[in-house]
Write a protein that binds this DNA or RNA. Structure first.
Length: 581
RNA sequence: GACCCCGUCGUCUAGUCUGGUCCAGGACGCCACCCUUUCAAGGUGGUUACACGGGUUCGAAUCCCGUCGGGGUCGCCA
């Protein structure tokens, strides 16, 4: 029986799930599904200072939102579903709870002199690095010739603070990668890296190798930034044996995924948000409009922190977001939560992400390349040979186009429900204005119908119907529109019709008399009204648009009026006539 | 700088392993026209690429070598 496939996603809980991490998780998930294997989630919280439980929870929620469910890992209840668990007894899945295990393996290595305590201070290491740089060589840590194991072990047993390093063997390391092919790393380019930090926690390299072995991971899919770590991991695997049965560690199959870049060719990173906010802040300060202090005050953050942020001493996302809000700039979407808040559909994100580095190599019925597919399809077809090698730029326009297409594929009721759910989380004002706090209302349904073909994201759905979300007397009239459609004669050949504003008076009377005030009824009325006066639809629709919305651009006339409702339509016409007739 | 990876339209890519069916296909973007009560949407058409230079071959996007370019890594972060 072949070994069952076990993949894993192992994020460190230092913030929301990064979009690149989401793709890695998706591919790991898809690979497991494709091979009837298991997908495992492990939280790499060995960095005490940066890890937090909230971040871990956030990542779990981000994954669940995307529909990426894990078979093993932290057991949580999200949106009524139970995910994770430990059926094979290989947990716990938080590395901070596995220190005993790491220490047992570390002792095993030290006992065999395959690892050794090192007492160099950070300053000494810094000096060595600086020297290497001066001499234009790559810094590689090497145990000095005068290293005295006996003395070192005595200090170690006495409990003196130190790190523990692997004593690397002499052989070159060959890495087999199912995306990139075989890659050879010469021994001299790898060094005695740290296995356990002075705080007693394992390094990433050590924890990852131990856990992947003990959890039975067979395939490691991860970003290409890890490629240069791989020889270390392989070297470690070759040095280790399992404590329970003495078997040597297995080397899993590696598959390094191409990187995802920004349009400007820089690596997409969480720091991009800080960069954007900092730039906006610098510009604002330079323009003399505001000082760093006034921005800090407006954003409700500590001025000292704001100064530190401006100086580039911290990239804290919370600071970046607060500052961006005050300055009115939008930050680039980098994390899954950003895309969720931006109104992208999870299934679209999954689809687009899958296309970044993987291709189904299949055709549609019309002969074009297949690009639109869902997670289930990915789970059936995903495989390593179709993964590309080249880094790709994240194309926001294409994502938006996909999101648009997915929105258009919904019927009005479906869209209304999805939009309502999004608003409940991110824009409650819309719900309040449309009377949809407790469910999709008739008005929200009309709004949805009007907004749907005019928005790429759920966040944009508000725009086309914004006129219906404000009070009647809050309409701001666009000067050009007033000039063009209200003050000019409706038809030079028919002076009896008067100006656009005057024409509105006549329409008002007929609108008031309409028994049904639905989009269909209003459109039918407008058509016959225009015909009866011998004018084009534009002569009727445009004055009404200006009266109802303040401008000449809005959804269909029937939808526009029905959405506002008869009473408000009449009130808005009255106000307009009083102002411009 | 050293090591490692990569190089097809502006972008994501198909084609490269198994050379000819590719004067290179699709998608997104962009442009034009049509439709039209505005804005969208929709319809039709167009735009643009094998990084460069040498080989090998009857024939190269596809194989080989070199050059150039881009990126990643060089932490007691992961």
């Amino acid at each position: 029986m072949p070994t069952p496939v076990i993949t894993r996603f192992a994020p460190s809980p230092t913030g929301h799930l990064h979009i690149g991490g989401a793709r890695t998780a998706l591919f790991c998930w898809a690979y497991a599904r494709r091979h009837d294997g298991r997908f495992l989630l492990r939280i790499e919280d060995t960095d005490q200072a940066r890890s937090s439980d909230e971040a871990a929870r956030g990542i779990l929620e981000d994954l669940a939102w995307l529909g990426i469910d894990w078979d093993e890992g932290p057991a949580v209840e999200i949106a009524g579903r139970t995910l994770g668990g430990d059926p094979r007894g290989v947990g716990p899945f938080f590395q901070a709870r596995r220190l005993e295990t790491y220490n047992a393996y570390l002792d095993w290595l030290i006992d065999r002199d395959l690892a050794y305590p090192a007492f160099d201070t950070p300053e000494e290491l810094g000096a060595m690095r600086a020297e290497a740089e001066r001499e234009k060589r790559t810094f590689r840590y090497a145990r000095s010739a005068s290293y005295d194991r006996g003395a070192a072990m005595a200090r170690y047993r006495a409990g003196e603070a130190c790190v523990v390093r692997l004593r690397l063997g002499d052989a070159d390391v060959r890495v087999r990668d199912d995306v990139l092919g075989d890659i050879a790393f010469e021994r001299e380019h790898i060094d005695d890296f740290v296995l356990r930090k002075a705080d007693g926690f394992p390094t990433y390299h050590f924890a990852v190798v131990i856990d992947d072995e003990l959890m039975g991971v067979t395939h490691i899919l991860r970003g290409q930034e890890h490629l240069n770590n791989t020889p270390r991991h392989v070297a470690l695997q070759q040095a280790l044996r399992r404590l329970d049965n003495g078997e040597p560690f297995r080397t899993p199959v590696y598959a390094h995924l191409p990187l995802i870049f920004n349009p400007d060719n820089s690596k997409m990173s969480k720091r991009d948000k800080a960069k954007a906010a900092r730039r906006a802040m610098k510009d604002a300060v330079a323009a003399g409009a505001q000082s760093a202090e006034s921005i800090a005050n407006a954003a409700g953050i500590d001025p000292a922190q704001a100064a530190a942020f401006l100086a580039g001493e911290t990239d804290a996302p919370s600071l970046a977001e607060a500052i961006a809000r005050v300055l009115g700039v939008s930050l680039p979407e980098i994390e899954v939560e950003d895309f969720r808040a931006g109104g992208y559909l999870p299934e679209v994100l999954v689809n687009y992400l899958a296309l970044l580095g993987w291709n189904p190599k299949a055709k549609n019925a019309d002969g074009t390349d297949l690009e639109k597919f869902d997670a289930a399809y990915l789970g059936e077809r995903f495989d390593l040979p179709a993964i590309g090698k080249t880094a790709s730029k994240f194309d926001r326009d294409k994502l938006r186009a996909f999101n648009f297409a997915a929105i258009q594929a919904m019927d009005d009721a479906q869209f209304a429900a999805v939009w309502r759910a999004w608003c409940a989380r991110y824009d409650r004002e819309v719900l309040a204005r449309l009377g949809a706090e407790d469910g999709v209302s008739d008005r929200m349904l009309i709004a949805a119908r009007a907004a749907k073909p005019r928005c790429n994201t759920l966040a944009e759905a508000r725009g086309p119907v914004a006129f219906a979300l404000i009070d009647n007397d809050a309409i701001v009239f666009d000067e050009k529109a007033v000039e063009k459609v209200l003050k000019k004669p409706t038809d030079a050949a028919k002076p009896e019709l008067g100006t656009g504003a005057g024409f509105l008076r006549v329409m008002r009377t007929e609108l008031d008399a309409l028994s049904a005030f639905t989009p269909e009824a209003i459109d039918a009325w407008a058509k016959s009204f225009a015909e009866s006066r011998g004018v084009g639809m534009g002569k009727v629709a445009q004055p009404l648009r200006v009266a109802i919305t303040g401008g000449t651009v809005s959804p269909g006339l029937g939808e526009t009026l029905a959405l506002v409702g008869k009473a408000s339509v009449l009130a808005r016409i009255d106000r307009c006539v009083a102002k411009f007739a």
